[in-house]
């Protein structure tokens, strides 16, 4: 479980984060293995999104370290992390309302492009070559893959919820991710949309060979597609393992049942 292992994409070691006096994460450690889908689950307020924001570099942890492919991320700003191949989607969809679907997806590639201000003003030459190559790649690799050809020129503000989530995934894929962070990819979706999204996630893992770390509440989907599950409660890792193991773990059951009599008895120190 240490970052030295070569098959570890992301290792989180002893991360603690607090806002004022409120502890969001306490000594969180786990590893995300290359090429697998790792899910982080836990009740509301368990610190899942705080964990994602810490990995993205939006929050700075008070202690602990996060390493990406063996290299510490502390001290690198969010844009640098994006450039290294950390891509993410957001819980409450962060598409840019003033742009079309195509421009939103193109934006994902920002960190890997070279066009500078002067190139951009002139356009003809370097900027044009780069833009057209980008367009071709996005059309062929991302838009076809996610089956969103029909909406490529639509403004995102007009899209239904399920499609927006898919466009957000498209943008993350345009970032040439090595590790994809998905924050509740199927929240608020109906069964059919959820199944589509689950299929896309599995395809991303298999066809693109991208490592995936996701936060999700839909237990059915988590148990179906993930290879490894980490359970957070009150900012602490209370269990981790294969989906089936985690499902049987008494501490996990207690956390989900809340602080009932059963919960109190089961949440013993050794289980944590």
């Amino acid at each position: 479980m240490t970052g030295a292992a070569t098959d570890v994409a992301l290792s989180v070691e002893g991360v603690s984060l607090s806002f004022g006096g409120v502890k969001a994460l306490t000594d969180v450690s786990f590893a995300v293995r290359k090429g697998l889908i790792t899910a982080v689950i836990g009740p509301n307020g368990a610190g899942k999104t705080s964990l994602f924001n810490t990995i993205s570099g939006f929050y700075r942890p008070q202690s602990g370290d996060i390493a990406f492919e063996g290299r510490s991320l502390s001290g690198s700003a969010p844009p640098e992390r994006a450039k290294l191949g950390l891509a993410r989607t957001f819980q409450n969809i962060a598409l840019f309302r003033g742009m079309t679907v195509l421009d939103n997806i193109k934006l994902g590639r920002h960190a890997h492009m070279r066009t500078g201000l002067l190139d951009a003003l002139v356009y003809h030459g370097r900027a044009r070559r780069e833009e057209i190559a980008l367009r071709a790649e996005i059309e062929e690799r991302v838009i076809d893959f996610l089956e969103i050809q029909h909406i490529r020129n639509a403004p995102v503000a007009t899209l239904p919820y399920g499609l927006r989530k898919r466009v957000e995934l498209a943008r993350a894929l345009a970032m040439r991710p090595r590790l994809l962070l998905l924050d509740e990819p199927v929240a608020g979706m109906n069964r059919e949309e959820t199944e589509d999204m689950a299929r896309f996630i599995l395809d991303v893992k298999e066809e693109w060979g991208v490592t995936i770390l996701m936060v999700e509440h839909d237990m059915g989907m988590v148990m179906d597609i993930s290879d490894h599950v980490v359970v957070l409660n009150f900012g602490q890792v209370i269990a981790e393992g294969a989906p089936a193991e985690v499902q049987m773990n008494p501490a996990v059951i207690a956390a989900y049942l809340g602080a009932g009599e059963l919960g109190r008895r089961l949440r013993s120190p050794e289980a944590a």
Partner: peptide, 11 residues
Amino acid sequence: ANLFRTRVGRA
């Protein structure tokens, strides 16, 4: 106009 056809404008 050119600026907004490139990554700079999108940013």
